[in-house]
Structure formats: structure tokens, C-alpha cells
Simulated assay, not measured.
Amino acid sequence: MDIKAGVLNKDEAEKLERIAYILKTVAHPLRLGIVHLLEKYPRLSVGEICEMLDSEQSLTSHHLQNMRLKGLLSVKREGRSMYYSLKERDVSLIIECLENCQCNM
């Protein structure tokens, strides 16, 4: 969906496009769980994330890779382990806003 010109200025439109991109990227319960953990712990290995979320390593690795490729996470190899961290604070801020929303579900 493209935002119509004239309704918003270019900067506002780009900001909304960025927010939509982030929301699409994290729109999965496991991905939201990963973001939540990485807010609490600045860097975690795949194994630590799997243990904390009680998830399978292959599925978790798939989601981590996807989020890394889309620019939301950074990764650093240490020995045989890969450590992930949030690359952008924007992800946390957007999710925090949604958590504080008084929406009825």
C-alpha cells in the first residue's frame, strides 16, 4: 500500500512505511518473544533463546535469520555460538506502545 501524496509529507510517509515494515517483520508470536527477551537481555545465543521460549532450535534459528536479514537484529559469532541483539531500539518502542494500548480483544 502506498500512502497518497498530499495527505502526509514525505518524512511522515517514510516513517509510517518503516513502522509497517517493522510490524510485518515481528508479526509472529515467536518473533515477538525474541524481541521481548532481547529487550531484557542485551545479547543471547540461539540456545539460550530456545531454552527461555521453549522452542525448537531450527524454527527459532529460522526466525532469527529472517529478523537479521530484515535489519532488526545483529549477530556476532563467538566460537561456535551466535549471539543476537536488537539492532534498533525502534522495534522495542513500537511494541511497547502496542502493549500499552487499551484495545479490547
Results as ranks from 00 to 15, higher is better:
Leu69Lys: 15
Glu78Ala: 08
Lys4His: 04
Leu30His: 02
Gly33Val: 10
Leu16Ala: 13
Gly33Arg: 07
Lys15His: 10
Leu86Ile: 10
Tyr84Asn: 06
Glu14Tyr: 11
Ile94Ala: 07
Leu23Asp: 00
Glu99Tyr: 14
Gly33Lys: 07
Ser74Glu: 05
Ser92Tyr: 01
Arg31Asp: 05
Met105Gly: 12
Lys24Asp: 06
Val75Cys: 03
His63Ala: 07
Ser85Phe: 05
Cys101Leu: 13
Leu72Val: 05
Glu88Lys: 14
Ile95Gly: 02
Lys87Ala: 11
Leu23Ser: 03
Cys103Ala: 10
Leu8Arg: 07
Ile49Ala: 03
Gly47Val: 04
Asn100Ile: 08
Ile19Tyr: 12
His28Thr: 02
Leu59Lys: 13
His62Leu: 13
Lys24Gln: 03
Gly47Arg: 06
Leu73Val: 02
Ala13Thr: 07
Tyr21Leu: 10
Glu12Phe: 04
Ser58Pro: 01
Leu93Asp: 13
Gly6Leu: 03
Ser92Ala: 14
Glu51His: 07
Ala20Arg: 14
Ser85Val: 03
Val75Gly: 00
Ala27Val: 00
Asp90Pro: 07
Leu32Glu: 02
Met52Val: 00
Leu44Gly: 02
Asp2Lys: 15
Leu72Pro: 02
Lys15Gly: 06
Cys97Trp: 12
Gln65Met: 04
Arg80Phe: 06
Leu30Ala: 03
Leu32Arg: 11
Asn100Arg: 12
His36Met: 07
Arg68His: 14
Gln57His: 04
Leu38Pro: 00
His28Gly: 06
Glu88Val: 08
Leu73Ile: 05
Leu8Tyr: 15
Leu86Ala: 03
Met67Cys: 09
Leu8Asp: 01
Arg68Glu: 15
Leu30Trp: 06
Ser85Trp: 02
Asp11Thr: 10
Val7Gln: 05
Lys76Ala: 08
